[in-house]
Write a protein that binds this DNA or RNA. Structure first.
Lengths: 221, 221
DNA sequence: CTTAAAAAGCGTGTTTTTTCCCTGTGGAAA
DNA sequence: TTTCCACAGGGAAAAAACACGCTTTTTAAG
C-alpha cells in the first residue's frame, strides 16, 4: 500500500482552468494523492519544476497553447523520465497514440471518464507502470492491442507526418489540388495518401476522414 | 449582496462524472454558492427534484443520454420556470442557440472557460437575469447580437428541423442521394437545403458543414 | 377572404471535385 | 536480386457544387 505520510504528488497541466481546478480538488479528495503543480500549458509547467519537489505523475492535456502535450511529453521523456505521464484529453488519441507511446507516455484517459477511472488509472500507473483505457476503437489501436506483428505493423499502423499533415489540411474547404500545392506534391500522390488513410482509418470518404480527424483534435482552429 | 446564511442552490446535470464532480467542488468553493443536486442526465435530475428544496440555478450539459439538455431545458421551462438554466457545454451552441433561448435558457458557457467566468456567469444570471459569453462567433450569433431585424431575421438565422436533420445526416459517408432517400426528399431539394446552409453557416463545402456540425456537437456517435 | 410575396420542392443541365481503376518509375531495404 | 513503397500518370465513373427556371405550399398583408 502507499505511504500515507508522503502522498503521491500529482501535477496537472491543462489550459481549461475550469476543468483543471475541478480535477485538482477531485484528486486531492483521493486518499494518498495530492496535487502539487498546476499549470496552464507545458512551458509554464516546465519552468515551474523544482528539483527535490518533482511530481510522481504528470497529467497532461494534448491541446494547449505555447507547448502542447506532445512537446511536453517529449521534454519530460528526455529530462525527467522517472516522472510518469498520463494523457487526459478531450479527444480520442488514437491517431497519435503510438507517437505518444514512443515518448514514454504511461496512460490515456478521456475527459468524459468516470471519477473512479481516474483514480484507477493513477493507481495502475504506480503499480503496473501503465494504464490503457479500453474505450478506444479503430484499426490502429486494435492492431496494437492484439499485438499483430511486432514493430513492422506498428509502423504501418502509425500515421506518418505526411498523413497527419494531409489530415489536418483536409479539415477545410480546400480541394485536393490546393492541398497538393501546399504540400508540394502531385495531386496523384494525394490520391495515394488519401486511399492509404481510408484503409488505416476505416473511412470511405473525405467527410469520414475529417470526422475522425476532429474527434482526435487534429484540426487547427 | 447575497445572503450568507442561505447560499444559492446550484444543480449540476452532466454525464461526464469526472468533470461534474470536479465542477461541483469548484462551485462549493465559491462564497455563497452550494451544489445541492448532482445528476448524470435530465431524467435522473427531474426525478430527484424535491419541492421545497428546488435549486436556484441548474447547470446543464447538452449531450446526455436518456434526456438531453434541450429536453431538460424544455421541461424546466414548462414546470419550474422560476429555476434559471445555464448551459455548460463541451461544444459551441450556436446552431441551436435560438432554440435554447426560446426554452428560457439564461446563459451559455463552454467547458474550456476560466473558473472566474463560471462564477461571473452564475452571479450575472442572479443579478441581471442572463449571461451570454462573448466567445461565440458565426453569422447566427452576430445577427442575434447586432439585433439586425427583430423576429424575421431570427427565423432566418435559426436552423429549421430539416436543416438540423440534414446536417446530422451529412456527418457520415452517405451521399446526398442516400440522404435524400432518408429524408423522403428529392436530391434537388437537398441541393437547396445544402446551399441554404452554406449561406447561413458561412461554409463552402460539405466538409465545411460537417466541421461546423461537429464543433456544435450535432453529430450522432 | 383575397392576393401578393416568400418559401419549399423539384426538374434539366453543366462544371468541378472526388473517388477509383490500373500502370510505371526510382530508391531503399531485405 | 527482389521486394517494398513513395510518388506519379491516364482515364473514367460517381458525387458534389452550381445555374436557372418552374410549380406548389405557406405566410403575411390588405
Amino acid at each position: 500500500m502507499t505511504n500515507e505520510v508522503t502522498p503521491i504528488k500529482v501535477a496537472l497541466v491543462d489550459d481549461h482552468v475550469l476543468v483543471r481546478s475541478a480535477i485538482a480538488s477531485l484528486i486531492n479528495s483521493f486518499e494518498s494523492f495530492k496535487v502539487t503543480y498546476e499549470a496552464n500549458n507545458g512551458r509554464e509547467f516546465v519552468e515551474s519544476l523544482t528539483v527535490g519537489q518533482l511530481p510522481d505523475i504528470v497529467i497532461l492535456d494534448l491541446n494547449m497553447p505555447e507547448m502542447n502535450g506532445h512537446q511536453t511529453a517529449s521534454w519530460l521523456n528526455d529530462n525527467y523520465s522517472e516522472i510518469s505521464v498520463l494523457i487526459l484529453s478531450e479527444y480520442d488519441s488514437e491517431l497519435t497514440l503510438i507517437r505518444l507511446l514512443q515518448k514514454g507516455v504511461k496512460g490515456f484517459l478521456k475527459k468524459d471518464a468516470q471519477a473512479s477511472e481516474l483514480k484507477f488509472a493513477l493507481q495502475a500507473i504506480l503499480q503496473t507502470g501503465y494504464f490503457y483505457s479500453n474505450h478506444t476503437n479503430g484499426k490502429i489501436v486494435n492492431l496494437f492491442r492484439t499485438g499483430q506483428g511486432g514493430s513492422v505493423n506498428l509502423q504501418k499502423a502509425m500515421l506518418s507526418d505526411q498523413e497527419l499533415q494531409f489530415l489536418q489540411l483536409s479539415c477545410s474547404d480546400r480541394t485536393y489540388k490546393e492541398i497538393a500545392l501546399l504540400m508540394n506534391l502531385n495531386v496523384r500522390t494525394i490520391d495515394t495518401i488519401r486511399d492509404q488513410l481510408f484503409f488505416k482509418l476505416d473511412a470511405k470518404s473525405r467527410v469520414g476522414l475529417v470526422m475522425i480527424a476532429m474527434k482526435n483534435g487534429i484540426h487547427t482552429y
